[in-house]
Simulated assay, not measured.
Amino acid sequence: MSQTLPADALRGKTALVTGSSRGIGADTVRYFAEAGANVVINYRNKAPRANKLAEQLRALGVQALVVGADLTDQASVEGMFAEVAKTFGGLDILVLNASGGMESGMAADYALQLNRDAQVRVLEAAVPLMHEGSRVVFVTSHQAHFIRTTPTMPEYEQVALSKRAGEDALREWIPALDQKGIGFVVVSGDMIEGTITATLLERVNPGAIASRREDAGRLYNVAEFAAEVAQAAVDPIPAENLRLVGETGSFAAE
C-alpha cells in the first residue's frame, strides 16, 4: 500500500475513522497516520485487530487511540468521544465509514439503526469537538447513493435504502456545519473488491462481483478506495459535497 497524502500534511491533527479495525477504515486511518495525524481507531468487536493496527501506526511516531464502541448505542458513542476529548482535546477529521446491514441474526431495522441513526448520533457527538477547518467524510456506495433512480440487486436493496437515508439525514446538517466552518463530503464508490459487503453479496448472489466488474470495466480495491476517502478529507469541497469514485455511467442521476 503506497502513501497517498504528503508526509507531515496532517501533523498535529487528529482523525477518527469509524469501523477502522479492518478494510477500508483501517487503510484510511493508516493513510492519515502516514501523513502525521494522531488517529482514533474505532471498532465494535475486533479488539485484537484494532490494537495490532494501533501498534503499527505508533511506530510511525503518531498517537493512536483505540476505542471500542457500538455506534447504535448512545452511551457507547458518548463514551468514545469523551475519550477523544480527554486524549486529544479536539477532532479535526471525522470519517463515517462504519456501515452494515447484511449480517445475519440482526433486528429487522438494524440497517436503518446503523446506516442512518448511528451516523447522525456520531456526528452530533463529534461536532462539539470540531472547529473551523475541520472535515466530515461520509462513505457510501453508488448502489446506495443512486438507489432512487437505479435499482440494485434485491439482496442489497434494504441496505442501500438505509445508507441513502443516512446520507440524506447527514446532508441536513450541512448548513449548521457550514456555519461552524466544518466541511462535509460524501464519498461514493462502486463495489469495492475485497470488502465484507462484496463478500456477503457474492455469497448470496454468486457472480455479482464479476458481473459488475465487467459492466464497469474495473473495480477499485480496498486500498485504492481508502486513498480516495483519505484524500476527500483534505481536498477542496467538491460540487454538491459529492466525490464520485469509479464508473457512474451505469447509474441514472437524480
Rank of each mutant, 00 (worst) to 15 (best):
A75F: 06
E214K: 10
A26K: 01
A165L: 10
E247V: 00
V120C: 07
A108G: 07
K46S: 15
E155Y: 09
G100M: 09
G133P: 02
W173S: 14
K163A: 03
D109T: 09
K13R: 15
S76H: 02
M1S: 15
M80R: 00
L129T: 04
P238N: 11
I41Q: 10
A75L: 11
K46Q: 14
A239L: 08
S188Q: 09
M102A: 15
G189N: 08
S134I: 00
L170I: 08
A9W: 11
E157H: 06
Q179K: 15
A118N: 02
G68T: 07
L71T: 10
Y43L: 09
E103S: 13
G25D: 03
P128F: 12
S76F: 01
T18W: 09
L219Q: 01
A107C: 00
V40M: 04
I24H: 03
E132T: 05
T14N: 13
I147M: 00
G61E: 06
P236M: 01
F81S: 09
E132K: 07
A7T: 14
T197L: 15
T28M: 05
G90Y: 06
A107G: 14
G217R: 05
V39I: 09
G249H: 02
E193V: 11
N51T: 13
L244F: 05
G61Y: 03
S21T: 01
A54Q: 11
E34D: 12
A111E: 06
A108D: 09
Y220N: 10
E34W: 01
Y31H: 14
I237S: 02
D73N: 12
M153D: 13
E172M: 09
A7H: 14
W173L: 07
A160E: 00
G217T: 02
P48R: 08
L123H: 11
A198P: 04
S188R: 02
Q74H: 13
S104V: 15
N221M: 02
A160H: 01
F251H: 09
G100P: 10
G181F: 07
G19A: 03
E254K: 13
G79I: 03
M191P: 13
V234L: 00
F138E: 15
A98L: 09
V222S: 13
A15P: 00
L96S: 06
G101A: 10
T28H: 01
S2Y: 11
E240Y: 13
F32T: 03
D168E: 13
G79E: 04
A69W: 05
E157W: 12
A223N: 14
I192D: 01
D70G: 06
A111H: 00
V84C: 02
V127S: 10
A108M: 03
V139F: 02
L53M: 08
G79Q: 01
V187F: 10
I41H: 07
T152G: 05
V40E: 03
V40S: 07
H142A: 08
V204M: 14
L5I: 10
A169P: 06
E247I: 00
A35Q: 01
E83C: 04
T149F: 08
Y156F: 15
V229I: 11
R135D: 08
A85T: 03
Y110P: 02
I237P: 06
